[in-house]
Design a protein around this nucleic acid. Structure first.
Lengths: 143, 143
DNA sequence: CCCTGCTGTAACGGAAGCTGTTACAACAGG
DNA sequence: CCTGTTGTAACAGCTTCCGTTACAGCAGGG
């Protein structure tokens, strides 16, 4: 499985913003976030751009610009983040159309679509159970 | 997300083998399976090789060679198949180590590991609820 | 009204994974 | 021994992801 790190990067950025906000610093630049994640600021801007389009963060331009949370950390679930940064389905179908003259080839895709839908639904339910505030709490507890 | 089709290919192959077995043909060659999936026989051999290592299918060499199910279709769950063909975790961690001088950078990985573990567990529970026989039943129902 | 600092995004490159293809050695029934 | 099939290596094309550089655009503050 592809195992990309987009969800991890986005959650890390949000958790860091939540901690900074608690310390009185509402506004962070992509450079400041990138310093904690240890990556290039453009990666952070791309990720936070996805989150902005989903309404999870706000951005300010001009001098004194930066990013801030659009909601309280308790109100942002990992499902919100997942929807913001991932679009591909979990499991791919056949790359080439199966043989439609075979009874299995003819019916397998809708059948699998149904099963895969149930799996994704279970995944989404689980992601919804955890908020950015939960992640931050567990993060600070781990010493 | 990468959305590879390995689970789909493997389940398709197993469902087709289950149907052929029900029709009295226990043994299928990789060419015959490839004809239903509509792909190259080597792809099928690679996939069935994973399933063989997991003990889900048997193989016979020599003349009259081919593949057969090692268990009844009711006894093979999609979780068995998933474990046989996927090894990467669902969500990747940071590609480069986060900044350990930041409290979030220091604690985020174990915290996320815990959350991701719960999500994978939910996914596994759901995959376990469906067998190859279930998939075949739904496949033949869809006309 | 300009200056400055940051965002938004395009363009590009390297690395890795997946799929598909060819080729060929190994194996085992008949 | 012959034949048909498996097992696997090697390779190519394609795509995605991550990282980097570059630069236009925006908006507060002086």
């Amino acid at each position: 499985m592809a195992a990309n790190s987009r969800l991890t990067i986005a959650v890390h950025a949000l958790a860091w913003m939540a901690l900074a906000g608690r310390r009185g610093q509402e506004l962070l630049t992509s450079d400041q976030v990138a310093a904690s994640v240890n990556t290039n600021p453009v990666i952070i801007r791309r990720s936070l751009g996805d989150l902005r389009r989903a309404g999870l963060v706000d951005v300010r331009h001009g001098a004194g610009a930066g990013w801030s949370l659009a909601r309280a950390p308790e109100e942002i679930t990992l499902l919100d983040v997942y929807d913001a940064v991932e679009q591909e389905p979990l499991f791919g179908m056949h790359r080439t159309e199966p043989n439609l003259e075979c009874p299995v080839g003819r019916g397998i895709r809708p059948a699998l679509g149904h099963v895969y839908g149930g799996v994704e639904e279970a995944l989404r339910r689980e992601l919804q159970r955890t908020s950015i505030a939960d992640v931050l709490r567990q993060t600070l507890r781990a010493r």
